[in-house]
Design a protein around this nucleic acid. Structure first.
Lengths: 196, 196
DNA sequence: AACTTACGGTACGGCGAGTACCGTAGTTGC
DNA sequence: GCAACTACGGTACTCGCCGTACCGTAAGTT
């Protein structure tokens, strides 16, 4: 209609991705249909399928576009850092984006290739901030050196995610975060007696 | 065709549920389509929709039919009990049934009513065996009394579930279970120093 | 026997994934 | 500046599956 020139290549790709992101934020992964994305981008499904093999791949691409890392807290004491990291995670999963992530993880259904792309946001790479914060605590003498281990370091955030996955809460109350920190995480990582 | 009499009521309901269970075990929740269940039960979708409002409800009903509680371990020491509970959970989630449960949790998408029915198997009620086992350990002096708290008691099984949800592993190696027990769970629940 | 209820058969409507075909505009090479 | 190629736009499919509607008919009821 308008005298706009026909888009190609990168320009069109960005338009499609922007449409996908808009649909994801407005309606979640369930609302991300190929027809709607195509319509919103002012193109058709053909152009999408030339770039992404299926709906899930487009969803993952859109999610990665949206998710960005939060700044690392440094309050000077372990408890403050840990609480802040937990609150960041809680905000993320409480947001519409958290629902998208859950749906993507479900749609991937244990398919390794897809999960690998999401792990940057939710898996092993997510252990890095925890190890950093714990490392500073060890240097201060607040934590035992043997807890610098991904499985131990990420216990708190794993427990929080469990609240979302199993209980389906829209947002975890702050009490729960505090409880996780004080009842589980700090007792676990603080200098402890030698095991039998 | 055959001179079989037409089924009604409970007999038909059981046939439908049996068909649903068969589809779930053979093809998982994805393979549980209303048409196939109807065909397999030798009836039609009508009879199904008179009993369950939608596909998810039928899936949940089929799952509950399949899931049964395992016997509570009692090895005489905390570590043995905990490892056995973890191995039970690992077997469950590694089985086709575990995939079904993941899909159902995903399909429920945080809908409380549905999640409540599954929690009997995976949520709060699942804390009971852990509290029992821990209670015996406390009586023996193996564990501190303040860990008799659902969030603390279930830490091990939550960590294990995380392996499945985030990493998508088909089955957790036994090393991982041992690591969870020795690196996280036992240090956490064993008698510990007074917190600051 | 008449009546009511529930099953069986079938045919829809709706939606969304993914595919196919083709005319046409933009780009590239000569 | 012209031809050849590539990629976009439009459209129309197929397929699978959920959920609903309609109706004849068998089973249980009184």
């Amino acid at each position: 209609m308008a005298g706009q020139t026909r888009r190609r290549g990168a320009a069109l790709e960005e338009a499609i991705l922007a449409a996908a992101v808009a649909e994801l934020t407005e309606s979640g992964y369930a609302g991300l249909t190929m027809d709607r994305v195509a319509a919103r981008a002012g193109t058709n499904k053909n152009a999408i399928y030339r770039r992404w093999p299926n709906r899930l791949a487009l969803g993952v691409a859109g999610y990665k576009q949206l998710a960005k890392a939060a700044p690392l807290p440094d309050t000077g004491e372990l408890r403050g850092d840990v609480l802040e990291l937990l609150r960041q995670a809680n905000r993320h999963w409480s947001s519409p984006l958290g629902g998208v992530l859950r749906d993507l993880l479900a749609a991937a259904g244990g398919a390794g290739e897809v999960l690998a792309q999401l792990q940057d946001q939710s898996g092993d790479a997510a252990a890095a901030p925890w190890l950093t914060v714990l490392g500073r605590a060890v240097a201060r003498g607040e934590a035992a050196p043997e807890v610098l281990h991904p499985r131990v370091a990420t216990v708190a955030v794993v427990l929080l995610r469990n609240e979302f996955v199993v209980r389906g809460v829209p947002s975890a109350p702050d009490d729960v975060l505090v409880e996780i920190v004080d009842e589980v995480y700090l007792p676990l990582v603080r200098r402890r007696g030698t095991p039998g």
